[in-house]
Design a protein around this nucleic acid. Structure first.
Lengths: 193, 193
DNA sequence: CGCAGTTTATACCAAATGGTACAAAAATAA
DNA sequence: TTATTTTTGTACCATTTGGTATAAACTGCG
Protein backbone atom coordinates (compact mmCIF):
# COMPACT_ATOMS: atom_id res chain seq x y z
CA UNK A 1 0.00 0.00 0.00
CA UNK A 2 1.29 3.43 -0.89
CA UNK A 3 0.69 6.22 1.54
CA UNK A 4 -1.86 7.91 3.75
CA UNK A 5 -3.74 10.94 2.66
CA UNK A 6 -1.69 13.98 3.54
CA UNK A 7 -4.62 16.09 4.64
CA UNK A 8 -7.13 15.29 7.32
CA UNK A 9 -10.45 14.29 5.75
CA UNK A 10 -12.36 15.07 8.89
CA UNK A 11 -10.78 18.43 9.28
CA UNK A 12 -11.53 19.21 5.65
CA UNK A 13 -15.22 18.54 6.16
CA UNK A 14 -15.15 20.79 9.21
CA UNK A 15 -13.72 23.59 7.13
CA UNK A 16 -16.41 22.99 4.55
CA UNK A 17 -19.09 23.18 7.21
CA UNK A 18 -17.79 26.61 8.16
CA UNK A 19 -17.90 27.88 4.62
CA UNK A 20 -21.32 26.44 3.81
CA UNK A 21 -22.65 27.84 7.05
CA UNK A 22 -21.33 31.31 6.35
CA UNK A 23 -22.30 31.65 2.70
CA UNK A 24 -24.94 29.06 1.94
CA UNK A 25 -24.74 26.24 -0.59
CA UNK A 26 -25.25 28.14 -3.83
CA UNK A 27 -23.13 31.12 -2.91
CA UNK A 28 -20.21 28.90 -1.94
CA UNK A 29 -17.91 28.42 -4.90
CA UNK A 30 -15.49 25.62 -5.50
CA UNK A 31 -12.66 28.09 -5.04
CA UNK A 32 -14.01 29.03 -1.63
CA UNK A 33 -13.89 25.39 -0.59
CA UNK A 34 -10.44 24.76 -2.03
CA UNK A 35 -9.08 27.81 -0.24
CA UNK A 36 -10.72 26.87 3.06
CA UNK A 37 -9.57 23.25 2.99
CA UNK A 38 -6.17 24.10 1.57
CA UNK A 39 -6.08 21.58 -1.27
CA UNK A 40 -6.42 21.83 -5.01
CA UNK A 41 -8.97 20.62 -7.49
CA UNK A 42 -7.36 17.28 -8.14
CA UNK A 43 -7.37 16.24 -4.52
CA UNK A 44 -10.82 17.67 -4.03
CA UNK A 45 -12.57 15.63 -6.67
CA UNK A 46 -10.56 12.59 -5.71
CA UNK A 47 -11.62 12.93 -2.10
CA UNK A 48 -15.20 14.17 -2.32
CA UNK A 49 -16.49 13.57 -5.83
CA UNK A 50 -18.44 16.78 -6.16
CA UNK A 51 -19.54 19.92 -4.40
CA UNK A 52 -22.95 18.47 -3.71
CA UNK A 53 -21.62 15.27 -2.18
CA UNK A 54 -19.37 17.28 0.09
CA UNK A 55 -22.34 19.34 1.17
CA UNK A 56 -24.35 16.26 2.07
CA UNK A 57 -21.38 14.89 3.96
CA UNK A 58 -20.98 18.19 5.78
CA UNK A 59 -24.63 18.35 6.75
CA UNK A 60 -24.51 14.79 8.06
CA UNK A 61 -21.40 15.41 10.11
CA UNK A 62 -22.82 18.64 11.47
CA UNK A 63 -25.99 16.91 12.55
CA UNK A 64 -24.09 14.13 14.27
CA UNK A 65 -21.45 16.17 15.99
CA UNK A 66 -23.38 19.28 16.83
CA UNK A 67 -27.06 18.61 17.28
CA UNK A 68 -26.99 14.94 18.26
CA UNK A 69 -24.02 15.23 20.57
CA UNK A 70 -25.50 18.20 22.37
CA UNK A 71 -28.94 16.69 22.84
CA UNK A 72 -27.48 13.42 24.06
CA UNK A 73 -25.43 15.20 26.65
CA UNK A 74 -28.31 17.36 27.85
CA UNK A 75 -30.59 14.34 28.12
CA UNK A 76 -28.28 12.83 30.67
CA UNK A 77 -28.78 15.71 33.07
CA UNK A 78 -32.12 14.28 34.19
CA UNK A 79 -33.29 17.81 34.95
CA UNK A 80 -35.61 19.11 32.22
CA UNK A 81 -35.69 22.78 33.11
CA UNK A 82 -31.95 22.88 33.53
CA UNK A 83 -31.37 20.92 30.34
CA UNK A 84 -33.59 23.15 28.24
CA UNK A 85 -32.13 26.26 29.81
CA UNK A 86 -28.63 25.01 29.11
CA UNK A 87 -29.54 24.35 25.50
CA UNK A 88 -30.51 27.96 24.99
CA UNK A 89 -27.44 29.13 26.88
CA UNK A 90 -25.25 27.07 24.59
CA UNK A 91 -26.90 28.41 21.46
CA UNK A 92 -26.48 31.99 22.65
CA UNK A 93 -22.90 31.29 23.65
CA UNK A 94 -22.18 29.91 20.17
CA UNK A 95 -23.90 32.81 18.45
CA UNK A 96 -21.91 35.37 20.37
CA UNK A 97 -18.55 33.65 20.36
CA UNK A 98 -18.11 31.36 17.42
CA UNK A 99 -16.46 32.94 14.41
CA UNK A 100 -19.18 35.55 14.66
CA UNK A 101 -22.60 35.03 13.21
CA UNK A 102 -22.08 31.83 11.33
CA UNK A 103 -25.33 30.52 12.66
CA UNK A 104 -26.51 26.96 12.19
CA UNK A 105 -26.06 24.91 9.06
CA UNK A 106 -29.26 22.99 9.66
CA UNK A 107 -31.42 26.09 10.06
CA UNK A 108 -29.82 27.75 7.07
CA UNK A 109 -30.57 24.68 5.01
CA UNK A 110 -34.11 24.48 6.37
CA UNK A 111 -34.83 27.94 5.03
CA UNK A 112 -33.39 26.86 1.72
CA UNK A 113 -35.21 23.51 1.64
CA UNK A 114 -37.18 24.11 -1.56
CA UNK A 115 -33.89 24.37 -3.43
CA UNK A 116 -32.42 21.10 -2.22
CA UNK A 117 -33.01 17.49 -3.19
CA UNK A 118 -35.16 14.90 -1.47
CA UNK A 119 -32.29 13.39 0.50
CA UNK A 120 -31.40 16.74 2.03
CA UNK A 121 -35.02 17.43 2.81
CA UNK A 122 -35.26 14.15 4.64
CA UNK A 123 -32.11 14.84 6.64
CA UNK A 124 -33.26 18.29 7.72
CA UNK A 125 -36.73 17.08 8.65
CA UNK A 126 -35.21 14.28 10.67
CA UNK A 127 -32.86 16.60 12.50
CA UNK A 128 -35.66 19.00 13.38
CA UNK A 129 -37.90 16.18 14.44
CA UNK A 130 -35.19 14.83 16.72
CA UNK A 131 -35.03 18.17 18.39
CA UNK A 132 -38.77 18.21 18.85
CA UNK A 133 -38.57 14.72 20.36
CA UNK A 134 -35.91 15.91 22.77
CA UNK A 135 -38.10 18.75 24.02
CA UNK A 136 -41.14 16.50 24.28
CA UNK A 137 -39.29 13.89 26.31
CA UNK A 138 -37.83 16.52 28.61
CA UNK A 139 -41.27 17.96 29.27
CA UNK A 140 -42.70 14.51 29.93
CA UNK A 141 -39.88 13.88 32.34
CA UNK A 142 -40.74 17.18 33.99
CA UNK A 143 -44.31 15.99 34.36
CA UNK A 144 -43.11 12.88 36.20
CA UNK A 145 -40.74 14.86 38.38
CA UNK A 146 -43.47 17.45 38.92
CA UNK A 147 -41.09 20.25 37.96
CA UNK A 148 -43.31 21.08 35.01
CA UNK A 149 -47.06 21.49 35.34
CA UNK A 150 -49.25 18.90 33.64
CA UNK A 151 -51.10 21.78 32.01
CA UNK A 152 -48.05 22.33 29.81
CA UNK A 153 -48.68 20.18 26.74
CA UNK A 154 -45.57 18.18 25.90
CA UNK A 155 -46.17 17.86 22.18
CA UNK A 156 -47.36 21.43 21.62
CA UNK A 157 -44.77 23.13 23.77
CA UNK A 158 -42.06 21.08 22.08
CA UNK A 159 -43.03 22.59 18.74
CA UNK A 160 -43.03 26.03 20.30
CA UNK A 161 -39.54 25.54 21.65
CA UNK A 162 -38.25 24.27 18.30
CA UNK A 163 -39.66 27.40 16.69
CA UNK A 164 -37.93 29.61 19.23
CA UNK A 165 -34.62 27.84 18.62
CA UNK A 166 -34.95 28.29 14.88
CA UNK A 167 -35.94 31.92 15.25
CA UNK A 168 -33.04 32.51 17.61
CA UNK A 169 -30.54 31.14 15.13
CA UNK A 170 -31.85 33.42 12.42
CA UNK A 171 -31.97 36.54 14.55
CA UNK A 172 -28.53 35.77 15.97
CA UNK A 173 -27.06 36.35 12.53
CA UNK A 174 -27.18 40.08 12.94
CA UNK A 175 -30.61 41.35 13.92
CA UNK A 176 -30.62 40.75 17.68
CA UNK A 177 -27.85 41.56 20.15
CA UNK A 178 -26.86 39.25 22.98
CA UNK A 179 -29.27 40.82 25.43
CA UNK A 180 -32.21 40.21 23.14
CA UNK A 181 -31.12 36.63 22.61
CA UNK A 182 -31.23 36.12 26.35
CA UNK A 183 -34.78 37.43 26.36
CA UNK A 184 -35.66 34.69 23.90
CA UNK A 185 -34.40 32.17 26.41
CA UNK A 186 -36.54 33.61 29.16
CA UNK A 187 -39.53 33.47 26.83
CA UNK A 188 -38.78 29.81 26.19
CA UNK A 189 -38.81 29.15 29.90
CA UNK A 190 -42.14 30.98 30.11
CA UNK A 191 -43.65 28.41 27.78
CA UNK A 192 -42.84 25.78 30.39
CA UNK A 193 -44.97 27.46 33.08
CA UNK B 1 -42.99 63.05 -25.10
CA UNK B 2 -42.34 59.69 -26.66
CA UNK B 3 -44.13 56.75 -25.14
CA UNK B 4 -44.82 54.98 -21.91
CA UNK B 5 -42.81 52.03 -20.80
CA UNK B 6 -44.44 48.98 -22.26
CA UNK B 7 -43.99 46.88 -19.14
CA UNK B 8 -45.28 47.65 -15.69
CA UNK B 9 -42.40 48.70 -13.42
CA UNK B 10 -44.33 47.86 -10.30
CA UNK B 11 -45.32 44.48 -11.60
CA UNK B 12 -41.73 43.80 -12.58
CA UNK B 13 -40.54 44.44 -9.05
CA UNK B 14 -43.25 42.11 -7.77
CA UNK B 15 -41.99 39.37 -10.04
CA UNK B 16 -38.48 40.02 -8.80
CA UNK B 17 -39.66 39.73 -5.21
CA UNK B 18 -41.03 36.31 -6.02
CA UNK B 19 -37.80 35.11 -7.54
CA UNK B 20 -35.55 36.55 -4.83
CA UNK B 21 -37.84 35.05 -2.20
CA UNK B 22 -37.75 31.62 -3.77
CA UNK B 23 -34.05 31.35 -4.55
CA UNK B 24 -32.23 33.91 -2.47
CA UNK B 25 -30.11 36.81 -3.74
CA UNK B 26 -26.95 34.99 -4.78
CA UNK B 27 -28.67 32.01 -6.32
CA UNK B 28 -30.89 34.25 -8.44
CA UNK B 29 -29.27 34.84 -11.80
CA UNK B 30 -29.88 37.68 -14.18
CA UNK B 31 -31.50 35.22 -16.56
CA UNK B 32 -33.93 34.19 -13.84
CA UNK B 33 -34.99 37.78 -13.41
CA UNK B 34 -35.26 38.48 -17.13
CA UNK B 35 -37.41 35.40 -17.60
CA UNK B 36 -39.63 36.24 -14.64
CA UNK B 37 -40.16 39.86 -15.62
CA UNK B 38 -40.38 39.06 -19.30
CA UNK B 39 -37.96 41.65 -20.61
CA UNK B 40 -34.44 41.52 -22.00
CA UNK B 41 -31.12 42.78 -20.79
CA UNK B 42 -31.33 46.15 -22.46
CA UNK B 43 -34.58 47.09 -20.82
CA UNK B 44 -33.45 45.62 -17.53
CA UNK B 45 -30.35 47.73 -17.12
CA UNK B 46 -32.17 50.74 -18.42
CA UNK B 47 -34.90 50.31 -15.86
CA UNK B 48 -33.06 49.03 -12.79
CA UNK B 49 -29.36 49.71 -13.19
CA UNK B 50 -28.13 46.48 -11.65
CA UNK B 51 -29.14 43.28 -9.96
CA UNK B 52 -28.25 44.68 -6.57
CA UNK B 53 -30.28 47.85 -7.01
CA UNK B 54 -33.28 45.83 -8.05
CA UNK B 55 -32.87 43.70 -4.95
CA UNK B 56 -32.81 46.73 -2.69
CA UNK B 57 -35.87 48.09 -4.45
CA UNK B 58 -37.61 44.74 -4.06
CA UNK B 59 -36.83 44.53 -0.38
CA UNK B 60 -38.10 48.05 0.17
CA UNK B 61 -41.32 47.42 -1.68
CA UNK B 62 -41.84 44.15 0.12
CA UNK B 63 -41.41 45.81 3.48
CA UNK B 64 -43.84 48.58 2.62
CA UNK B 65 -46.54 46.53 0.98
CA UNK B 66 -46.38 43.38 3.02
CA UNK B 67 -45.12 44.01 6.53
CA UNK B 68 -46.09 47.65 6.98
CA UNK B 69 -49.49 47.34 5.35
CA UNK B 70 -50.39 44.32 7.42
CA UNK B 71 -49.28 45.77 10.73
CA UNK B 72 -51.07 49.05 10.05
CA UNK B 73 -54.29 47.23 9.34
CA UNK B 74 -54.03 45.02 12.40
CA UNK B 75 -53.28 48.01 14.62
CA UNK B 76 -56.64 49.49 13.74
CA UNK B 77 -58.50 46.55 15.21
CA UNK B 78 -58.01 47.92 18.72
CA UNK B 79 -58.12 44.39 20.04
CA UNK B 80 -54.61 43.11 20.86
CA UNK B 81 -55.33 39.42 21.26
CA UNK B 82 -57.39 39.36 18.09
CA UNK B 83 -54.82 41.40 16.19
CA UNK B 84 -51.92 39.18 17.17
CA UNK B 85 -53.93 36.04 16.52
CA UNK B 86 -54.91 37.36 13.11
CA UNK B 87 -51.28 38.09 12.31
CA UNK B 88 -50.33 34.46 12.87
CA UNK B 89 -53.39 33.30 10.96
CA UNK B 90 -52.36 35.44 8.02
CA UNK B 91 -48.80 34.13 8.05
CA UNK B 92 -50.00 30.54 8.15
CA UNK B 93 -52.52 31.26 5.40
CA UNK B 94 -49.74 32.72 3.24
CA UNK B 95 -47.40 29.85 3.94
CA UNK B 96 -49.96 27.27 2.97
CA UNK B 97 -51.49 29.03 0.00
CA UNK B 98 -49.08 31.38 -1.65
CA UNK B 99 -47.16 29.91 -4.54
CA UNK B 100 -46.09 27.24 -2.09
CA UNK B 101 -43.28 27.74 0.35
CA UNK B 102 -41.84 30.98 -0.88
CA UNK B 103 -41.60 32.20 2.67
CA UNK B 104 -40.71 35.76 3.56
CA UNK B 105 -38.16 37.91 1.79
CA UNK B 106 -37.29 39.77 4.97
CA UNK B 107 -36.62 36.63 7.02
CA UNK B 108 -34.64 35.05 4.20
CA UNK B 109 -32.51 38.16 4.01
CA UNK B 110 -32.13 38.28 7.79
CA UNK B 111 -30.56 34.84 7.77
CA UNK B 112 -28.27 36.03 5.01
CA UNK B 113 -27.43 39.34 6.68
CA UNK B 114 -23.66 38.80 6.99
CA UNK B 115 -23.47 38.62 3.20
CA UNK B 116 -25.25 41.88 2.50
CA UNK B 117 -24.18 45.51 2.66
CA UNK B 118 -24.79 48.02 5.43
CA UNK B 119 -27.86 49.52 3.76
CA UNK B 120 -29.58 46.16 3.58
CA UNK B 121 -28.66 45.40 7.16
CA UNK B 122 -30.22 48.65 8.25
CA UNK B 123 -33.40 47.94 6.32
CA UNK B 124 -33.80 44.45 7.76
CA UNK B 125 -33.09 45.60 11.30
CA UNK B 126 -35.62 48.38 10.92
CA UNK B 127 -38.27 46.05 9.59
CA UNK B 128 -37.77 43.61 12.43
CA UNK B 129 -37.76 46.37 14.98
CA UNK B 130 -41.02 47.72 13.60
CA UNK B 131 -42.54 44.33 14.14
CA UNK B 132 -41.27 44.25 17.68
CA UNK B 133 -42.75 47.70 18.26
CA UNK B 134 -46.09 46.50 16.94
CA UNK B 135 -46.18 43.62 19.40
CA UNK B 136 -45.09 45.81 22.27
CA UNK B 137 -47.77 48.41 21.59
CA UNK B 138 -50.43 45.76 21.26
CA UNK B 139 -49.46 44.25 24.60
CA UNK B 140 -49.44 47.66 26.23
CA UNK B 141 -52.88 48.28 24.82
CA UNK B 142 -53.91 44.95 26.27
CA UNK B 143 -52.65 46.08 29.65
CA UNK B 144 -54.88 49.15 29.48
CA UNK B 145 -57.87 47.16 28.29
CA UNK B 146 -57.08 44.53 30.91
CA UNK B 147 -57.27 41.79 28.31
CA UNK B 148 -53.62 40.99 28.93
CA UNK B 149 -52.23 40.53 32.44
CA UNK B 150 -49.76 43.12 33.67
CA UNK B 151 -47.43 40.24 34.53
CA UNK B 152 -46.82 39.80 30.81
CA UNK B 153 -43.84 42.00 30.04
CA UNK B 154 -44.51 44.04 26.93
CA UNK B 155 -40.92 44.43 25.79
CA UNK B 156 -39.83 40.87 26.52
CA UNK B 157 -42.90 39.16 25.14
CA UNK B 158 -42.64 41.28 22.01
CA UNK B 159 -39.20 39.82 21.35
CA UNK B 160 -40.54 36.34 21.98
CA UNK B 161 -43.33 36.84 19.47
CA UNK B 162 -40.94 38.20 16.86
CA UNK B 163 -38.83 35.09 17.32
CA UNK B 164 -41.84 32.84 16.86
CA UNK B 165 -42.81 34.67 13.68
CA UNK B 166 -39.31 34.29 12.28
CA UNK B 167 -39.16 30.64 13.25
CA UNK B 168 -42.55 30.03 11.72
CA UNK B 169 -41.47 31.49 8.40
CA UNK B 170 -38.44 29.25 8.31
CA UNK B 171 -40.26 26.09 9.31
CA UNK B 172 -43.07 26.87 6.88
CA UNK B 173 -40.66 26.38 4.01
CA UNK B 174 -40.91 22.65 4.23
CA UNK B 175 -40.24 21.32 7.71
CA UNK B 176 -43.60 21.84 9.42
CA UNK B 177 -47.03 21.02 8.03
CA UNK B 178 -50.04 23.26 8.47
CA UNK B 179 -51.13 21.62 11.70
CA UNK B 180 -47.76 22.25 13.31
CA UNK B 181 -47.83 25.85 12.16
CA UNK B 182 -51.13 26.27 13.95
CA UNK B 183 -49.52 24.93 17.09
CA UNK B 184 -46.97 27.71 16.84
CA UNK B 185 -49.81 30.20 16.88
CA UNK B 186 -51.29 28.66 20.00
CA UNK B 187 -47.84 28.82 21.63
CA UNK B 188 -47.67 32.49 20.75
CA UNK B 189 -50.98 33.07 22.46
CA UNK B 190 -49.64 31.20 25.49
CA UNK B 191 -46.92 33.81 25.83
CA UNK B 192 -49.65 36.39 26.36
CA UNK B 193 -51.05 34.64 29.43
C1' DC C 1 -42.63 63.92 -41.28
C1' DG C 2 -39.21 64.10 -37.80
C1' DC C 3 -37.71 63.94 -33.27
C1' DA C 4 -37.48 61.61 -28.83
C1' DG C 5 -37.36 57.81 -26.15
C1' DT C 6 -38.15 52.66 -25.64
C1' DT C 7 -38.11 48.09 -26.97
C1' DT C 8 -36.14 44.34 -28.96
C1' DA C 9 -32.31 41.53 -30.44
C1' DT C 10 -27.84 40.55 -30.87
C1' DA C 11 -23.03 40.57 -30.17
C1' DC C 12 -19.61 41.09 -27.00
C1' DC C 13 -16.86 41.30 -22.68
C1' DA C 14 -13.76 39.42 -19.01
C1' DA C 15 -14.31 36.66 -15.22
C1' DA C 16 -15.90 32.78 -12.72
C1' DT C 17 -18.59 28.58 -12.64
C1' DG C 18 -18.30 23.21 -11.71
C1' DG C 19 -15.82 19.64 -13.54
C1' DT C 20 -12.24 16.71 -16.24
C1' DA C 21 -7.69 15.23 -17.75
C1' DC C 22 -2.99 14.45 -17.23
C1' DA C 23 1.89 14.62 -16.37
C1' DA C 24 5.21 14.95 -12.92
C1' DA C 25 6.58 14.65 -8.20
C1' DA C 26 6.55 12.40 -3.85
C1' DA C 27 6.17 8.67 -0.55
C1' DT C 28 5.38 4.15 0.96
C1' DA C 29 5.41 -1.01 0.45
C1' DA C 30 7.07 -5.08 -1.62
C1' DT D 1 14.64 -0.90 -7.11
C1' DT D 2 10.27 -1.16 -8.59
C1' DA D 3 5.41 -0.87 -8.15
C1' DT D 4 1.60 1.53 -6.40
C1' DT D 5 -0.99 5.42 -5.29
C1' DT D 6 -1.80 10.05 -3.80
C1' DT D 7 -0.43 14.65 -4.23
C1' DT D 8 0.25 18.85 -6.79
C1' DG D 9 0.04 21.83 -10.59
C1' DT D 10 -1.56 23.13 -14.73
C1' DA D 11 -4.10 23.12 -18.75
C1' DC D 12 -8.48 22.67 -20.47
C1' DC D 13 -13.56 22.23 -21.06
C1' DA D 14 -18.21 24.31 -22.08
C1' DT D 15 -21.36 27.09 -19.68
C1' DT D 16 -22.85 30.83 -17.10
C1' DT D 17 -22.03 34.93 -14.60
C1' DG D 18 -23.15 40.25 -14.32
C1' DG D 19 -22.73 43.88 -17.31
C1' DT D 20 -21.97 46.89 -21.68
C1' DA D 21 -22.65 48.31 -26.41
C1' DT D 22 -25.09 48.82 -30.49
C1' DA D 23 -28.17 49.01 -34.20
C1' DA D 24 -32.74 48.46 -35.85
C1' DA D 25 -37.62 48.63 -35.07
C1' DC D 26 -41.44 50.61 -32.83
C1' DT D 27 -44.56 54.25 -30.79
C1' DG D 28 -46.15 58.68 -29.63
C1' DC D 29 -46.08 63.79 -29.81
C1' DG D 30 -45.44 68.20 -31.98
Amino acid sequence: MPWEKSFDLDEAVDQSISVFMAKGYEATSLSDLLAAIGINKGSFYNAFGSKKKLFTQSLLKYDNEQRKAMLDELSQMQDPLKAIGSLFDALIEQSVTRGCKKGCLMVNTALDLPNHDAATEKLVKHSMSEMEVFFRQQIELGHKQESIAKSVSASETAKGLVTLVVGLRVLARGVFDEESLRVIKSQAMHLLK
